[in-house]
Design a protein around this nucleic acid. Sequence first.
DNA 1: GGTCTGACTTGCGTATGCTGAAGTCAGCAT
DNA 2: ATGCTGACTTCAGCATACGCAAGTCAGACC
Lengths: 159, 159
Amino acid sequence: MKDLRDDRDSWTSENCSVARAMDIVGSRSTVLIMREALLGTRRFDDFVRRVGVGEPAMAARLKEMVTAELLERIPYREPGQRTRHEYQLTRKGRELLPVITALRNWGDTWAATDTGPSIVATHHDCGEPIRAVLRCAAGHEIADGDIDITAGPGLIRRD
Amino acid sequence: MKDLRDDRDSWTSENCSVARAMDIVGSRSTVLIMREALLGTRRFDDFVRRVGVGEPAMAARLKEMVTAELLERIPYREPGQRTRHEYQLTRKGRELLPVITALRNWGDTWAATDTGPSIVATHHDCGEPIRAVLRCAAGHEIADGDIDITAGPGLIRRD
DNA sequence: GGTCTGACTTGCGTATGCTGAAGTCAGCAT
DNA sequence: ATGCTGACTTCAGCATACGCAAGTCAGACC
């Protein structure tokens, strides 16, 4: 199996999952909203306060994210309150956890403050810290350079 | 150990590694440049052509990324050519691979085209596809909901 | 009927990002 | 000396994105 990096100009990056992912979750505020949503935040003003963006920007972002199906706008009602809406993660949104975790790991290492990380995700069963790591389907851990880039069905070749 | 999500308003997200990471790699074009760099691209005009952004934007982005130490601008010389510069990944840049991989995995699943993914990263030793997955330091695979959020040394508490 | 609160919307001014077209610059080749 | 090429820079112009301040609106509570 030939590695696609050896002949980089014989194919294009038009059909690229990374680019399409970035079109959806590519902005700073969207990622920070996902961070908060994954920490359990659900209500509009909590998002505004905890993410630190203004109300107009937050309203626009949340609307986009509902359209993108990262979040679902769900009515709820606390006793003695009127009906309100909260933003719940969809499966599509929840599955961004490895992305956010990988970003947090990287930031902890390469954009650290001298105080160290503010929060650590740990395994509930054993208490050890959690990281996003590369594994193959056979379960092997991937070392740097152990990767081949091979063609998928959607590869667009150039003549 | 108490889970920080249970008392979300007793601490702030000011010292957040995700936010700092996004300040560095938060824009679409920066991520796409990283994608290309991780696929082996090094030269200015290759970046322009393969990423699909204009020259002025590319020059600005690359300059930022050199300042951020994701890339290093290194002189090289092909025989019979004059000295030029190429952009090589630093360790800091290379370690974004799990982030890009997680994004690609997510895009393959949730922002797919009907043709399927264009490229697949596979393990050189066994040929199986590679994914970014969550693991704890003890090596356990993490299932949804098996995560605790605990305080790190840099946590900023509110009174 | 008036107040209060959460969840927005509207308006405005600034900042950043990107594109396209054109210009610059260094130095090897002729 | 002139041309050529890769790697940019400069300029004008448009399009988002965001912050701040203020306004709106619905419905429970008094």
